[in-house]
């Protein structure tokens, strides 16, 4: 514990700016993954334990596209689209067969997907460490804001994550499709009775969730090492985020992700030995006191 240092940092503009930006950087990428997880749970009522796989696939697709084309934009698109398409395939051929069955069946199908995809990635890309790289302009010196430093690439990453979050929110709350999806979450029979193809819609929502994970993977690929099995730690963190924020709540995922990002950023200054334990403690506490999460609506 070092509260003096923490207080010193909070009251110094440069330290405060740097650490807040750190919290956002850690948090927003986590939000992208967790929001996909939450979207799928909220609408389909299934927990996608294989979500980390789509994060990994997004990263590897982006890596491959960047190697071939050298275009950063194409790489991002390839990561998002590749993960989304495989997500739809996974939903149609595997997950959809275990809807309404017990939780363990869903868990096993996802476990199988993790095992298979990790091995396939190892066969195709090899076991060695990889990084995607980034355009020169992003690798420029960090921007100075009120004495604090924020790297150019992270500014881009934050903007992307915020933009995607905003589009997601508008899409769900302000469009006709969003209205149908919200209805689907509450009463799928009624939506089906209105002549809407619910199976297609389920696949689309699942794919959308995977696009979010894939985009996060692609955005992380220039700065985080690509290895088979890289989705695991991200999966665990995003579970913590969804549980804290409320399963099925996208605003909840945002709040929880930023909360965890800021906890880690300022925890590193104030109580560096305890930040990881703090995340599990927070999750346990939320589950005990408010199982539906901070902003969740489903009751346990």
């Amino acid at each position: 514990m070092n509260l003096d240092v923490l207080a010193g940092c909070v009251t110094t503009a440069s330290c405060f700016v740097t650490q807040v930006s750190t919290g956002l950087i850690v948090g927003m990428l986590l939000f992208l993954v967790a929001s996909g997880l939450s979207l799928i749970f909220g609408v389909l009522g299934v927990v996608n334990f294989a979500h980390g796989v789509f994060y990994m696939l997004g990263a590897y697709f982006a890596f491959a596209a960047y190697e071939v084309t050298g275009s950063f934009i194409l790489a991002l698109l390839a990561g998002a689209a590749g993960a989304g398409l495989l997500g739809i395939v996974f939903e149609r051929f595997f997950m959809s067969r275990v809807y309404g069955r017990d939780l363990l069946m869903q868990l096993l199908v996802c476990y199988a997907a993790i095992l298979i995809c990790d091995d396939l990635v190892k066969i195709v890309f090899g076991a060695d460490y990889k990084l995607m790289g980034m355009p020169e302009s992003f690798a420029a010196a960090p921007v100075e804001v009120m004495g604090g430093f924020i790297p150019g690439y992270y500014i881009f990453m934050l903007a992307m994550a915020l933009g995607i979050g905003a589009v997601l929110w508008l899409g769900i709350n302000r469009t006709r499709l969003g209205k149908i999806i919200r209805a689907l979450a509450i009463n799928p029979q009624m939506v089906g009775a209105l002549g809407i193809n619910t199976r297609l819609l389920y696949a689309a929502v699942f794919g959308m969730g995977c696009v979010l994970a894939g985009t996060a993977g692609a955005l992380a690929a220039p700065v985080r090492t690509l290895t088979p099995g890289m989705g695991l730690s991200v999966l665990i963190e995003s579970f913590i985020v969804t549980v804290i924020g409320g399963m099925g709540s996208i605003p909840g995922a945002l709040v929880a992700a930023v909360l965890i990002g800021l906890t880690r950023a300022f925890g590193a200054i104030g109580f560096p030995l305890f930040t990881d334990g703090l995340m599990f403690a927070l999750m346990g506490l939320v589950l005990i006191l408010r199982p539906s999460g901070l902003l969740g609506t489903r009751t346990a």
């Binding site: 067969r97 096993l108 199908v109 476990y111 199988a112 095992l115 298979i116 091995d119």
Partner: peptide, 19 residues
């Protein structure tokens, strides 16, 4: 050495086949 691949396929066969 691709036991993950094999094990995964067996799991899918049991879950989706035998149910």
């Amino acid at each position: 050495h691709h036991h993950g691949l094999v094990l995964g396929i067996v799991i899918l066969a049991i879950v989706l086949g035998l149910r």
